[in-house]
Design a protein around this nucleic acid. Structure first.
Lengths: 212, 212
DNA sequence: GTTCCGGGGAATGCATGCAATTTCATCCTG
DNA sequence: CAGGATGAAATTGCATGCATTCCCCGGAAC
């Protein structure tokens, strides 16, 4: 169930700042309020929703500063994954990555934004797995989920597909060469560009007071 | 309350694998089971406790592989913080860091393990803050908390205090020079050594099935 | 002696009910 | 007409109760 709510947020069915009413959610999932409350608490710990005492949980809202820090962190994490992938991927993993990348070329040509977005997620997930570090995988996955509500429609911008494909290519080449440094650099700048390309709408109000 | 339970785990009052009974905790905090359940859920999301359906929550237990991945991730994160600190710390932050470091020298001489451990935490926290990236700060703080139950008594080993002090010194020097690369390297190897020095006891069973 | 089976106790999962706080609308006042 | 106060509805926080599941221990069979 937390998965279901999380997806609703990540997919964008719920926009940052929107209220998550306990009774509505309880009705929607046909359960009592108790499990809903627990799910919201969990989502709060994951950073996907903001909670304040005696106030409705809302889809996490984030200051521009914090959003920037997440993008920067994402770039660092992707760089780590790329570097470790370059050093550690098995031959099978490398081959699969390269094949998937090459196969995505025709999605670029046909301009299939939806399909390319799916491929993109898979591509990056491969990178995260290739690092062979479960904790890094968790962190990067969770960061991506928290970033998702803010990078909607990144492939709508003209030419972005081709650019993304080219950048992926650079990462793949570095990984095939087992060149960790180059892979890290390529991955870092890739995310940086995504961050620029994103329709970044930061919360004007309600600076989600995070900080463990 | 989640803070209280989390502290009990991090401080080491509860050992990995130990059961967290809902009714006992409810009695201990003089509340009903409901808030306890929610707290446990939150701790589960934070990775400090493992939960399985219809089974007691237990203090997070971790496979040796996963523990290793956390130490490696910690090294990477500390390296990032050190590099960013070298690039971004204000003059005030740099000065305070250096002063605190130098002041810790006498703790090394007197062999005050407890006090040095406190200083150590503060020193690293300064590094995390100096990176001026809130999300990285969150990640590194949470990782440290999850690692804490497994690195108990790292300063008991003879000579570890002096070694730690020396390594801190290398980091400080690099930061004062604004040499991000050197700071990152120093921080990385520092954590690596801590990982070796730690009394690493991995869970034999119950491979905490994490993975977002 | 070991292994399999079953029952009692205990603990979790969830629903419901009540108190406390918030929120919104209406009304009053300047 | 604008702004603030007041009261009621709605919503959250927590306690309690019951159904379900699991765990543990004793006993019997091999």
């Amino acid at each position: 169930m937390v998965r279901a709510i999380a997806d609703m947020i990540v997919i964008g069915q719920m926009l940052p700042g929107e209220k998550l009413d306990e009774v509505s959610l309880a009705a929607r999932f046909e359960v009592s309020r108790t499990p809903v409350r627990e799910a919201l608490r969990e989502l709060g710990a994951m950073g996907l929703v903001d909670r304040q005492p005696n106030r409705s949980a809302i889809v996490a809202t984030v200051t521009e500063t914090y959003l920037h820090s997440m993008f920067e962190a994402m770039a660092e994490l992707e760089a780590i994954c790329a570097r470790l992938s370059a050093e550690r991927m098995t031959v099978d993993e490398r081959r699969t990555l390269e094949l998937a990348h090459k196969a995505s070329m025709k999605l670029v040509h046909t301009g299939a934004e939806e399909d390319y977005a799916a491929h993109n997620i898979e591509f990056h997930t491969r990178l995260y797995r290739g690092a062979h570090n479960d904790h890094v995988f968790e962190m990067v996955t969770q960061t991506r989920a928290r970033l998702a509500p803010f990078r909607r429609a990144q492939f709508r911008l003209p030419g972005r597909l081709a650019k993304s494909y080219e950048e992926h290519g650079r990462i793949v080449i570095a990984i095939m060469r087992a060149d960790g440094t180059a892979a890290a650099q390529a991955a870092y700048s890739h995310v940086e560009l995504v961050s620029d390309a994103s329709a970044v709408f930061a919360a004007t109000r309600e600076p989600s007071a995070r900080g463990t």
